[in-house]
Amino acid sequence: MSDSLPLLKGTLDMLILKALSIEPMHGYGLSVWLEEGSDGDIVVEDSAIYQALRRLEGRRLVEAEWGVTENSRRARYYTLTAEGKEHLSSEARTWDRYAETVGKLLATES
């Protein structure tokens, strides 16, 4: 955990939306997706994921329903809403522009 990247504010929310845009997941699934997708670079405390999920639910960007896992465990599955999809694509665009601009500036030769 010591080498992992610190998360910028709001980034976790965006990543969760991204994950859910692929398929509905439960909290644990999200944690695994983040860790594996980033090759272990992004590791957060699991509780942070749940707090983010509550926030996203309150903004009606995600919805949740109880379901059953492959291993027959009860888990709450989160789905992206239509609003969530829209939000994700606009956030992603903003992120791209931001990253591009910052990257360009940092690459400037002095």
Binding site: S47, R54, R55, G58
Partner: peptide
Amino acid sequence: QRFGDLDEARRRIDDETRRRDRRLGRL
């Protein structure tokens, strides 16, 4: 350990849940 301090985490998530429900009620 990975989840974080369990009591603390529960408290924070509960807070966040309450906030969520207030918002949803309003909406």
